[in-house]
Design a protein around this nucleic acid. Structure first.
Lengths: 151, 151
DNA sequence: CCAGTCAGTTTATTTTCTGTACTGACCATG
DNA sequence: CATGGTCAGTACAGAAAATAAACTGACTGG
């Protein structure tokens, strides 16, 4: 299988991974959630080649995850912001953060704290069931083919 | 920045992405959560070169995400299973699934359904605050440097 | 006019991925 | 006891992608 075929698989993970499953794409998204909006800023923060930054931003805009918005004329300059679809990647990013905090934070502790504005506390993401509200883990889930499964 | 430097960044996303932020690695993990355990099965299901399967499995074992366990002698054959650390990636995978279901399921619906054994309902993952239990989205979170931040 | 900002593109090199074929240890069948 | 099948890999060479460094072009500010 090749990259482009991944998006056509009858699997939501394959389809999502075809869009965001790339090292630098995920790092770009991290920066988006931290408020980075400009090409130069992405390039400088990530320390990667401009080619890659340009490519990843282009892809994400093409997928509707980011929007490219002019912020000045003469010359026209653009900045990149999360769309609603992009915002919905927040749980993915938070889940990755939590896993990283648990397994790769040194004894110093996590590099970044997250505060829930609604309650005011520093928190970490907990995954719950949309139906009963209880916590969900790998062992408490059963999968079966859904309506969009392969023929 | 290069791949190997990513793991040394004072950022839990960078550190996690250095381990799992790769197209095929994520697909391997998907299959692990679906119960796939053997080399041949990974290779056949993913349809990718054996070299990559071998490499990704080796990396994941090296990181303690998977464990390589002999399941027969003469010749000794191994299978791969999620460790506890690997199981903790479940929220990441479920968050990716949910995003894919929302944005890439055709009108046929999601390819896979997930049932929460505890309550018996089909569900999707909801991310909540560990402190107050309310739902969390991108707009309700504030970040600030934590104890493990860069000097 | 000289330097600086900003969003990219170009180019050549290096790295990684990929398919195909192979190994090596077995087993089951005729 | 040869033939084919299973299984977990490895070896290798060609194709694809990532990379750094330099360049473009349209400005602004002093």
């Amino acid at each position: 299988m090749k990259w482009n075929e991944l998006a056509e698989q009858p699997c939501s993970i394959a389809r999502s991974v075809a869009v965001i499953g790339d090292r630098w794409t995920l790092m770009v998204l991290r920066d988006c959630f931290l408020g980075v909006r400009r090409f130069e800023a992405f390039q400088e923060r990530l320390g990667i080649s401009r080619t890659i930054v340009a490519d990843r931003l282009r892809r994400l805009v093409g997928e509707g995850v980011l929007k490219r918005v002019p912020y000045q004329d003469n010359p026209t300059r653009f900045e990149y912001g999360l769309t609603e679809k992009g915002m919905e990647l927040h749980p993915v990013v938070m889940a990755i953060v939590h896993w990283g905090d648990r397994h790769y934070a040194g004894r110093a502790g996590p590099p970044l704290l997250h505060r829930h504005k609604a309650c005011g506390h520093d928190f970490h993401a907990v995954q719950t069931c949309s139906e009963c509200g209880e916590m969900v883990d790998a062992r408490s889930v059963e999968t079966r083919p859904g309506p969009g499964a392969a023929e």
